[in-house]
Computed example of a mutant assay.
Amino acid sequence: MRTRVDVFESIFLVFLGLGTLVGIVVIAYTMYNAYKYRDNGDAKDDDTLPTVGELPTGGKGGKKLFLSFGISAVIVISLVVWTYGMLLYVENPEDDFEEEPIDVEVVGDSFAWHFEYENGVQQSGTMNVPADHPVAIEVTAGDVWHSFGVTDLRVKADAIPGEYDETWFIAEEAGEQHEIECFELCGDLHSDMTGTVEVNDMDGDEFEQWLDDQLTLDITIETHDEEAITNVTDENIEVQLVHQNNDEYDADLEYTRDADDFDDEGTVTIDEIEQGGEYELLIEFEDDEFDTIEDTVEVTSPASETYTVGDEEEEDDDEDENGDEDDDDDEEETDDDETDDGGDDE
């Protein structure tokens, strides 16, 4: 499949070749006529030559003019039709895609570029794409007018608040990085509004798996003294994670875990999340030893959350009581020592 770079390079080379050829022909013909009809000082007696003030009566010159205009018209019209067909391919190549494109929404906002993939994974500054695979993007803006552009990939799309401009590209070479720029004067930090297209050495399926792997959530539960929950209780723990817009998706975006899923560090991992976004998190303890935890977490990239359970005041009281007992013991030991010392003195 042809890339945007291939298309625009083809158009450039065709125009360059034809322009060079026409230029050579025109200059050569001009030089030939300049030499042929040069003034060498010899007057010629020719009744067919017009005199001063007399209009030419025509002849072979008219045929040459008609021929030159005809050839020029054919060349120009052919170029227009061919170029228009190439640009139509650039504008709407979906029928020619050999693979399903990767969909990415691009948002220009606050002098930075933000990217969201179809499964909800979000990135800022860097857009990861697979090598030699079509990428379809929708470009918009969150504040003022911007213009998304990647010169190396011949990509440019307006970013206008409330509107979406669609375009596409294919990055062929794995390991390369292409600079993203803003081509619309958008404010004081316009020149700093840059980003990177990073081309990964993956095929389409591998990249889809990589995107799925980005949606993971690690949940750690510990006490105030940073001791893992698995070391302080044997009761069952139920963890429930539900997408806020679960009803809008075909898949059931609800995930549960229990105490058996926690490791020795008091951490449980949810790694089969299918769609990024905001989730409602509920953590319940079977015997009500600890308070129920309710929270809203955003999972748009690898995330981790740590929750502290237990009553900090009670722990402090326990520590104080233990400290007071130790102090009493120390005082008793000190009194005994003083008594012993006094007896020895007598």
Score class of each variant (00 low, 15 high):
2 R>D: 12
208 E>L: 03
30 T>N: 09
283 I>A: 03
97 F>I: 03
74 V>N: 01
245 N>E: 10
325 E>C: 00
64 K>C: 07
164 Y>K: 15
178 H>T: 01
179 E>P: 05
74 V>E: 02
78 S>M: 04
116 E>F: 00
186 C>V: 03
136 A>H: 07
169 F>S: 04
102 I>A: 03
49 L>Y: 10
309 V>S: 05
54 E>W: 10
11 I>Y: 03
228 A>F: 12
217 L>E: 03
1 M>G: 14
282 L>N: 13
232 V>R: 07
336 D>S: 11
308 T>K: 03
124 S>K: 13
47 D>I: 15
190 H>W: 13
307 Y>V: 05
303 A>T: 12
60 K>H: 10
134 P>F: 03
175 G>S: 14
114 H>W: 03
161 P>E: 06
193 M>A: 10
311 D>C: 02
124 S>E: 09
274 E>H: 00
303 A>C: 01
10 S>Y: 02
95 D>K: 11
291 D>V: 01
45 D>V: 14
14 V>A: 13
143 D>H: 04
32 Y>S: 06
93 P>E: 00
303 A>S: 15
151 T>D: 15
175 G>Q: 10
335 D>L: 14
59 G>C: 07
250 D>F: 05
58 G>S: 05
233 T>N: 08
126 T>H: 04
271 D>I: 00
173 E>A: 13
46 D>F: 07
270 I>V: 13
209 Q>P: 00
176 E>L: 04
61 G>W: 13
340 D>K: 10
243 H>V: 04
28 A>N: 12
80 V>R: 02
11 I>A: 05
203 D>H: 04
225 D>C: 02
69 F>R: 05
26 V>P: 02
267 T>Y: 02
118 E>M: 01
75 I>E: 05
266 G>P: 10
83 T>I: 08
65 L>I: 11
45 D>I: 04
145 W>K: 11
228 A>T: 12
259 A>R: 15
245 N>P: 01
220 T>V: 04
174 A>Y: 05
227 E>G: 00
5 V>E: 11
110 S>G: 08
13 L>W: 07
222 E>M: 15
229 I>E: 02
62 G>S: 14
119 N>M: 01
191 S>P: 00
205 D>F: 00
48 T>P: 00
143 D>W: 10
294 E>M: 06
101 P>E: 01
71 I>E: 13
68 S>Y: 14
199 V>C: 09
156 K>W: 10
308 T>N: 07
170 I>H: 10
